[in-house]
Structures are given as C-alpha cells and as structure tokens.
Design a protein around this nucleic acid. Sequence first.
DNA 1: GGCATATAGTTAGTTATGCAACTATATAAA
DNA 2: TTTATATAGTTGCATAACTAACTATATGCC
Lengths: 146, 146
Amino acid sequence: MPNNQFRRGELYSFITGMASTAIARRLQKNFKQEGIEITIEQWSVLYHLWKKDGISQQELCTASFRDKPSITRLVDNLEKLKLVKRMPSPTDRRSNLIVLTDNAKKLHDQTMEIASRTLNEALEGVSASDVERAKVVLQQVYDNLK
Amino acid sequence: MPNNQFRRGELYSFITGMASTAIARRLQKNFKQEGIEITIEQWSVLYHLWKKDGISQQELCTASFRDKPSITRLVDNLEKLKLVKRMPSPTDRRSNLIVLTDNAKKLHDQTMEIASRTLNEALEGVSASDVERAKVVLQQVYDNLK
DNA sequence: GGCATATAGTTAGTTATGCAACTATATAAA
DNA sequence: TTTATATAGTTGCATAACTAACTATATGCC
C-alpha cells in the first residue's frame, strides 16, 4: 500500500468522526447541564425554524441536509415535546408547514448562547483565519460529493 | 444576537454534519456499487484490525473513538458476517481479542482501494497543504473537547 | 378530461450512537 | 486475606440515520 494511501485513511477518521462527534457530544452535554432536554438533532431543526418559521418538511430536509424520513421523525418527536406543530399548507395539500410553538421560541436565546459557548470551547486556540480556511476545505469536500 | 454568533452557528453545521456525512455516504455508496455489503462503521473497525490484528475491544474503542457498547455491537455484527472472531485473552479473562477471519483479510485490498478513491473524489481541487491545515484545526477541536 | 410522472410525506426494517445499569474479573489497599 | 475500586465487556432503552416501499396530491402532456 503506498504511503499516501495510508495517510489519507488517517485523514478519513479526522474528517469523518472525531471533531464533529466531539462537538455534538459536548453540545448535548452542555444542553443537559442547563436542564435543556432536547437532542442536538432536534435543536438543529429548531435552529432552521428560528431563521424561518413555517417552512415545509422538504425545506427542512434541504436546510438541514437530512432525508425525508429523518425529518418526519424529528418533527414527530418535536411535536410530542410540544415544540412545533404541523399545519396543513394552504396552497399544497401534500405539504405540511412546520411552525414553532411559544415553548420553542423561549428556547432560542438560551440554546444559542450555549451553542456559541460550545463553539468557543471547540475553537479555543484556533485563529479565525484557520477556521475560515478549514471551512473552505470542508465546503469543497461537500461540493465535490453532493 | 450578535453577528459573529450567527456565523459560528453556520460553522457548526459545516464541522458537524456536511463534509463528514457526505464522505460517509459516498464511501457507503462506492462499497455497494462494487458489491461489498458492509457498513462503513464495520469497515472502520476492520481498518484498525488490518493495522493490528488480535487486539481487545477496549483497544478498538480507543482506536476508533467509540464507546464500549458501540464496539460490542459492531463486533457482534462482524461476527455474524464471519469477518471477525472473539477469542478469549490468555492473560485477562475479562477481555476478548478480536481476530480477523480469512474472509476479512480478502476484503483489505479492494476496500482500501475504494476508500482511497473516495477520498480522492472528496479532496478533488484541495491542495495537500490546505488538507494538512484543516486536519490541524480538526485535531485541535478534538483535543479541546476530549 | 385522462394518464404518466413528479413531489410531499409516512412507514417498516436494519444499523448505529449515547447513556445508564449491570456482571465478571483484576488490582490495590487495609 | 478481605475489601474496595477499577476495568472489560454486555444489555436495555431512546434517538437517529439510510434504504426501500408506500399513499396522496400535483403537474404536464395527449
């Protein structure tokens, strides 16, 4: 096996697993410590709804890079938690519009503060320009494969 | 909400989801196209065993950044697929040594070639030095949170 | 209008993760 | 030696992901 193949195998584990799951776990832990009992996946859905409320499940799929079954179940669980409601679309009877409840609106400020703090923990000692360069690489990887 | 908090929220999605899941999906797809019916998680366990065969589940946990239940079940499934066997450790009766079967050894060359090719697809147009810099950032993130 | 096709969303089955609780064995301290 | 503690691994429960198959509605074409 050529040496560069080995190094790329190592890289795979870096990009694929380590940093992303570490951030996810830490964010989940920080939520829990403040008594916020939602998963980070649920939070990421709320995150898009806070930016734009009342969008369809399909729009949530696109925004959050998930497939339709994943969004169906995340919305199921968010509905059980009384954080969102499915409303029939007035223009398309196949489609639901997902709207935030007051409970979810109340979570915005606190969870965004925790997410911001978590990202600060994660990026401690990393310069803004290195972060930007890493973003560009990861975006390029995504674009190469989508 | 201050503007830089918003930008960091965007960054979160970069690091957490996009690139890593895109690579995982593409690798899975490339395996499947060549008729290799294992998951990338199973492959990542084999990957460590190819480097060093006959290690304990705990060593697999450390090497693959997974917790013990995850490794227990991955080894369960790999055993069902006749790709590994649990052997009792001769020195510690609590411990299993996980050894590759001949079937698993046969998968090495083909899957490494696919993984290498997939990573080439992913990194197309990204310079080696940018890859190295991104690796450093992701490693730093991991170290910050572990 | 009627038919083919595309789109929105749901359901079922398998795999994987995280967490907590558990068993069994090993090690260290009294 | 006995007791406490640490370690290796398993099991149960909840959540989430991917794939494939499905229902219902919309759209485009004849």
